[in-house]
Amino acid sequence: MKDNKYFLDDKPDKISYSEVWQKFFNWARAKSLWVVAYGTGCGSIEIPPMVTSRFDAERFGVSTVGTPRQADVLIISGYLAVKTLKRVIRVYEQMQSPKYVVGLGACTVNGGMYYDSYNTVNLVELYIPIDVYVAGCMPRPEAILAGFAQLMKKIKEGRADGWKHYLDNFEQYRKNQEKIIKNWKIPNYNW
């Protein structure tokens, strides 16, 4: 075991494929997005209508899984406190690449209505890379689906490379995170 401070085991090396294969895999990735069911803020209340009968995200291949290990997409649904950010980073680093992050609501963009709160992170972009923002307070499920369509488009074109950016600039991201997170230990009451 390495130092407990880092939850990411190591950097996966980059394998290069020919362009046709890359396009094929990107198509498969875009068509099958598994969302980790982890609600971080008030926007998580918009996720259940999105995946159930009314809006039915499964017809686009978007389905939910219960564990970050198998997930492709992390939805940051609303404001992040420092405490939540710690868990979000942990979940994000447990996910296996390629992985994508969707920021939901005005709070993830720039703090939203909590711009002067002592405990709400203003710019989530500083701590984890976000591929698609869905603005609104809160966005309706239609808007989230539109955001997913945007994400699929980005993946198909190979532009959704937030996870690559995170690995390449890992030290910088870690420095930003450590600026506000002093203690990585998660207390016992999480169980």
């Binding site: 085991d9 996966p12 895999f25 498969a28 099958s32 492709d72 296996q96 690449s97």
Partner: peptide
């Protein structure tokens, strides 16, 4: 499609 995607995912576990 899920299977194709899963085969090409990386893992560090």
């Amino acid at each position: 499609i899920d299977l194709i995607k899963l085969i090409r995912k990386r893992t560090a576990i």
